[in-house]
Design a protein around this nucleic acid. Sequence first.
DNA 1: CTAGCGATGTTGCTGCCATCAACTTATGTA
DNA 2: TACATAAGTTGATGGCAGCAACATCGCTAG
Lengths: 220, 220
Amino acid sequence: MAGHVAVVNMPVVSPSAKRYHHGNLRAALIDAGVERAREGGPEAVVLREVSRLAGVSHNAAYRHFADRDALLQAVCDRCMSELARLMEAGIAEVDPDERSVQAARLRLRATGMAYVEFALSEPGWFRTAFAVPPGLGYLDGEEGVGAGGHGPLELLGEQLDGLLDAAALPAERRAGAELAAWSAVHGFAMLVLEGPLRSLPDEERDAALTRLLDTVERGL
Amino acid sequence: MAGHVAVVNMPVVSPSAKRYHHGNLRAALIDAGVERAREGGPEAVVLREVSRLAGVSHNAAYRHFADRDALLQAVCDRCMSELARLMEAGIAEVDPDERSVQAARLRLRATGMAYVEFALSEPGWFRTAFAVPPGLGYLDGEEGVGAGGHGPLELLGEQLDGLLDAAALPAERRAGAELAAWSAVHGFAMLVLEGPLRSLPDEERDAALTRLLDTVERGL
DNA sequence: CTAGCGATGTTGCTGCCATCAACTTATGTA
DNA sequence: TACATAAGTTGATGGCAGCAACATCGCTAG
């Protein structure tokens, strides 16, 4: 996503040529929104500023998005996808063919670590990913998915299934396990990022994360 | 806090008499801010609107607060205090003299339940409590405390100490237990309130909360 | 080949907000 | 009792979201 440039549906003309019709404005606006969100989070996704970045006048955006929230929604999706990709990458670091309890546990742990690492390394994107405008329900389907076509929740579920298969998770506890694990890492990220623990020293923060993941592993 | 009316430092004159000097504007502004936050969360704490509610012109607020963020900060504190009070109330429902493992566990559970109940019953206040403006670190000291003078983090810590005393928590796991437990309930509240799980049916939500608290209890 | 229509951008409003500066009124104190 | 100062007010500026009316372009039917 970093340095992302829309490649699909590129304008037929040279991008430098200043034309009345942009040719690919919708994608350009989302790109610009993602860029701003990276620095300043969801509140930095400002229609006028984003339009300026896209080299177009304010109001042009209204041809492609009903209002600011619609643009923000699209930007949120992209941020969520980025999170999914990072989680996929973390999971993939454990040999996919390995079926041991150990491997299943490592994968779950990697999932949680990737989640928090994303929050800490890209706070703007992380906050944006969860800043879906009120009223709009998360569709949980096609949007916000990683390269494998699965969203964060599905990725987490797959790791829990892996734990189940490896007999490291009692079957009667499988239900609802997603939400328990997810809540833990999400809350940690929020508290540390913009909550009361925002000024916790890095060292203590990392120790607390390890402690947290241990707790989840024991408790699930 | 509901229907809260500032009693300390009330103006010496009848409140209905329209005077040039309000007499107690600072408190009135905070009250109005809390009222708006209840409905619309932190973004509803708007200087002009709050001033209107206090029956004073915009800009009057600048005699009492450096800027909007300073007012918001004060409102956040009040919301956090309200959370602390609800947690205290939940904890107090278990006989304070009872020292059993059972009682200690119930108290921890009540703490978490109160936390989530506050988030669900007063979403505006909950979101505001954690919306301390960036740059301002949480002081974690005098602010945001309940009737007993303790903040949410301290209240949680006390319950964990209780678990320790009752030998329901190994001493080597006491460190960092606050953050683990807190993260879980906080993440749950966020995900359910404004996150991807915002449209989860009440029934499933309650079941998930039970499952979550079980997990924490086992894992700590 | 070309007229014109619809899609895409632009200019110029309105109304809301935060904040600054300059002015006014009340209060308490010397 | 005068006046310094705290507390409120009026009236700017500049930014943002969104509406309306106008301008330009590109494609397609005839």
